[in-house]
């Protein structure tokens, strides 16, 4: 069914869905204490949801532009792997800390991006991690998560 829709219709349906869900969620807000004058907590979000839903309807009714591979090229296997690497980086931080994760990520993502020279990948990864450590930890005094392996 959805295949018959163009990109505008798919976008409109997604945004419309967000608007409906957000509108419905306002019914779960706690009630406003009695005696407070003016607009409550739900009116503004509801107004925005209605506006959003209205615009989604307008977009749905618009003719979709022809598919442009320049705007939305097909997502290849390597791109999916890079997405997965980004997603995996966050839980990995709990284990080997942020700097460890960055070092590993730079090698893995660089390889997935098509770089085949391992020594260069490792060298750039270590160099970049060292620069980040120097700038953010030493100069700007940010405390980065160490993970349970490097400092819990």
């Amino acid at each position: 069914m959805i295949r018959r829709f163009g990109s505008s219709q798919v976008s409109a349906l997604l945004v419309g869905l967000v608007a409906v869900a957000a509108f419905a969620a306002t019914y779960g807000f706690d009630p406003v204490p009695d005696g407070l004058p003016g607009l409550g907590a739900v009116e503004f979000p509801r107004l925005v949801c209605l506006l959003l839903a209205g615009m989604a309807v307008l977009l749905f009714l618009q003719e979709s532009p022809p598919h442009d591979p320049e705007t939305a090229p097909p997502i290849g296997r390597d791109a999916w792997m890079i997405f997965a690497a980004c997603l995996a980086a966050v839980p990995l931080m709990a284990t080997i800390g942020m700097l460890g994760t960055i070092a590993v990520f730079l090698v893995v993502a660089g390889r997935l991006w098509g770089e085949t020279r391992w020594p260069l990948l490792v060298g750039v990864s270590l160099g970049m991690t060292a620069v980040i450590w120097l700038v953010f930890v030493k100069i700007f005094r940010l405390t980065l998560p160490g993970g349970w392996l490097f400092g819990g």
Binding site: A89, M93, I102, L106, G110, E115, M128
Partner: peptide, 13 residues
Amino acid sequence: AFLWPSVFALSLI
């Protein structure tokens, strides 16, 4: 291959 993974690393921080 070096630029964009580095952008992600900076984004994490």
